[in-house]
Simulated assay, not measured.
Amino acid sequence: MGLEMRAFKDIDLNDPFFDSLKADYKEFPDWFAKKAAGGDDAYIFLSDTGGLDGFLYLKVEDGALNDVVPALPPRPRLKVGTMKINPHGTRLGERFIKKIFDHALAKKVEEIYVTVFEHHSKLINMFAEYGFHALAFKTTANGTEQVLVRNIHAPFKDVTTSYPLVKTGNSTVFQVAIEPKWHTKLFPDSILRNESASIVEDVSHTNSIHKVYLAGMHGMEKLRRGDVILIYRKSDGAAPARYRSVATSVCVMEEYRSLGSFADKASFLAYCRPYSVFTDAELDYLWQVKKYHHVIRFTYNFALKKRVTRGDMIDLAGVSESAYAGFLELTHDQFKKILQLGEADESLVVN
Rank of each mutant, 00 (worst) to 15 (best):
I209N: 02
D264R: 06
R273G: 09
I209Y: 01
K211S: 06
T331P: 10
P29W: 00
N125Q: 12
V349A: 04
A177C: 00
D30T: 09
R91I: 01
I231Y: 00
D62G: 10
F28G: 09
A241P: 08
R297N: 10
T140M: 13
Y43E: 03
W287S: 01
K305T: 06
H218M: 06
D158F: 01
E255N: 12
L192F: 11
K9D: 14
G342Q: 08
V114T: 12
P16T: 05
K234I: 04
V176I: 14
E254I: 13
D48K: 05
P188K: 09
T279I: 14
S20R: 12
H103A: 11
E254Y: 08
C251P: 08
L92M: 03
K181V: 12
V295D: 05
R225F: 00
R310Y: 02
Y213G: 05
Y292W: 10
M220R: 03
T160K: 11
L316M: 02
R297I: 07
N142F: 08
S196I: 04
K22P: 03
I229D: 04
S121E: 12
G226Y: 00
D202N: 15
F298Q: 13
L21G: 06
W31I: 09
L148M: 15
K98Y: 04
S347H: 06
P73A: 07
P180L: 05
V277I: 10
D333C: 00
L304E: 12
F268H: 10
D202F: 03
K157F: 01
D19Y: 03
E201T: 01
S261A: 07
W287C: 04
V289D: 15
L46W: 10
L78R: 06
A263K: 11
L65I: 07
P274R: 06
T144S: 15
H103K: 09
E343K: 11
G237W: 01
G131Q: 11
F32D: 12
A317L: 02
L92C: 07
G226R: 00
P29Q: 04
K306F: 04
P188S: 11
M126T: 15
F327R: 06
K222C: 00
I124Y: 05
H120M: 14
V289N: 13
L339D: 15
G216P: 01
E4W: 00
E195Y: 01
T168L: 15
L186D: 05
H133L: 05
D189E: 15
L192Y: 07
R307C: 08
G63T: 10
F17N: 13
